[in-house]
Amino acid sequence: MTEQQSETRNERRDLVISARGLTRRYGRTVVVDAVDFGIARGEVFGLLGPNGAGKTTTILMMLGLTEISSGEVSVLGFDPARQPLKVKRRVGYLPDAVGFYDQLTAAENLAYTAKLMGLARAERAGRIEAALARVGLAEVAAKPVATFSRGMRQRLGLAEIIVKRAEIAILDEPTSGLDPQATQEFLGLIGELKAEGVTVLLSSHMLDQVQRVCDRVALFRAGRIELMGAVPELAVKVLGAGFVVEVEAEGAGIARRLALIPGVTKVETLADDRFRMTAERDVRPDAARAVVAVDGALRKLSVDEPSLEAIYAHCFQAQPAGDVRHAA
C-alpha cells in the first residue's frame, strides 16, 4: 500500500510531535496510559474515541497545560513541560467549546490574544483582518462576540490560530454541536490549513468527518491507543477486508456464483435477492458479470467504502475489554 509506505517514510523524516510512553495519572486512575505516537509535518491526524478516553488530556500534555506523570512528548523538538512558551508560540489550540469575552468584539478578542502572542502592534491589525476575512467573519469583526453563534465562535477560534501562523493546529472537538452546513464550512477551513502545510491534530467522535479530512487516525480507548493508521489500512486490519459490495439481483444460484469471484472472502445472503460480499478489492465489475452469467436481473450494485464507523464499532463493541491491550 502506498499510504503505508509514505507513512513510514514520514515517521522517519519529519516528526513534529512524538510521544513515547506518555502517561497521565490522577491519583490511582490512569487517564492516559503510556501512549506512543508520532505525527508528521503537514499531516491531518485524528484522535478518536469515546468521551473520557484521554484525548483532551493528551492534547493538554502536548501544550504543557497539564502535568505529565511519566513518559515524554516532544512538540517541534521542544519539551512542553519545560519549554511551554516555545511550544505555545508555534502551536495553535482550539479548545472544546471555545469561549470568548462576550462583551468584546471579535477583533478585540483576537487583538488580546495577538498581544499575548507577542505580535508587534503594526503586524497585529493586518493579520487579524486577514484571518477574519479567511474564516468569513470580516463583516462581524466589530460586533460583540455575545451575538455569535456556535459556528461563528468556532471559526473565530480558528482565526486565532491563523493569526498565530501556527505550525501545528490542535483542534479539540471542533465540529461538535455545529449544524451540517457550519460543519462543512469548518472542514473546508481545515482542508485549507492542510494545503498551507499546517499540521492538524483533530480530536473528535464524529467519525464520518474525521474520515473525510484525516490522513491518519488513532483510536483511543480507556487511555490507550487501540489502533493507529490510515483508514483503509485499519479497515483491512480490523474488518479483514477493505471493500463491502452489496448486490441486489434476482436469479438462481447468484450467491454461489459470487463466491467464486477471485478476491472475495465472504458472501452473506441478506434476503432472497440481496447479497453482501466482502472483498479485498473493488469487485463490482466481476459481480455484474456474475449476475449476468446466471441470467439474473441486476437491480443494484453498491460499494461501501471502508468506513471508520465500522472499524470503530468493531473496535469498541465487538472486543471485550480484557484482550484489547495488544491490538495496537
Binding site: L65, L85, V98, M117
Partner: peptide
C-alpha cells in the same frame, strides 16, 4: 465558566 481559560493559557504566557 466563559471557557476562555484554556484558550488564553494556550498563548505563550505562564
Amino acid at each position: 465558566s466563559r471557557r476562555t481559560l484554556s484558550r488564553i493559557l494556550a498563548q505563550p504566557i505562564y
